[in-house]
Simulated scan of single mutants.
Amino acid sequence: MPLTQEGAVAPAVRSLLVWGLLAGLVGGVLAFGFASAFGEPSVAAAISLEEAGSEGHSHDTGHSHGEEAEVVPRSFQATGGLAVGTLAYGVGLGGLFGLATAFAYGRIGSASPRGTVAAVLGIGYPAVVLVPFLTYPANPPAVGSGDTIGERTGLFFGMLGISLALAVAAVVVARKLVGRLGGWTATLVAGVGYLVLVTVVAKLLPTVQEVPVGFPGALLWEFRIASLGTSAVLWGGIAIAFATLVQRGLTRAE
């Protein structure tokens, strides 16, 4: 049975939201650890390249503008700032995860609580993370022009919104086809349709290529893998912690 009720929110929905926030905290801690170990070294290397390039340019032109004071020290960015960012994002994502599970539970066939969490993960991660990332991958410092950051941000979130909308449409289509094709075939047809449509959209959207000539390909690859790995750890940590809480809580309630 769906957890939502007409004109009100079932108590179980509030529990799912709380469990989602707690799971988000767990996921944020895990993501912080992963980003510190695997992401920060590539960020530091990219910043060193950027600073070396700036110094070389000032020497070549014979002018020195002096060192600009950092608004937030790099040492804090790599520690406290990273921790605050990942934990805040994790808690927010965990809350959304809880709300999505509350809506999906009882509406995806006869899936168990853990099965519903797995479905939310299986739909949400590709739609929200993988597809936008593959279309407009993350870049380290020293890559990308400050003049185009607004355009690049808009394109990324535009792709994210389109991907999520198409994923929701795919779920609706799959539900309508279940009666005629069966669960497996309906899911496969809807999934293939989603992949075809997001591929077409990605091809139609403007491309962004601002990696400077001579930038180390290995460093760029390392940074992007670390970025994708951090998001995978975050989503995976949330899903595992949340599924554990949900299965225990809802099973006991029923």
Rank of each mutant, 00 (worst) to 15 (best):
M1H: 13
M1P: 11
P2G: 07
T4P: 02
T4E: 12
G7A: 06
V9C: 00
V13R: 01
W19D: 15
L21N: 01
F32V: 07
F32N: 03
G33K: 05
A35G: 03
F38G: 00
P41F: 09
L49I: 15
E50L: 08
E55I: 09
G56Y: 02
G62Y: 05
H63G: 00
S64I: 06
S64A: 14
A69T: 13
E70R: 12
V71L: 15
R74M: 12
S75C: 01
F76W: 09
Q77M: 14
G81M: 07
A83C: 11
T86M: 09
T86P: 01
A100R: 01
F103V: 15
F103P: 00
I108K: 07
G109C: 09
A111Y: 14
R114V: 15
A119H: 10
G122K: 08
Y125R: 00
N139V: 15
N139Q: 13
A142L: 05
G144W: 00
S145D: 14
T153D: 08
A170T: 04
V172E: 10
L177E: 06
L177W: 10
L181Y: 12
G183P: 01
A186P: 05
L188V: 12
L188M: 05
V196K: 07
V200R: 05
K203E: 04
P206K: 12
T207R: 12
Q209F: 03
E210L: 08
V213G: 09
P216G: 11
G217F: 04
W221I: 06
E222R: 13
S231V: 14
V233A: 02
V233G: 03
G237I: 04
G249I: 12
R252S: 08
E254D: 14
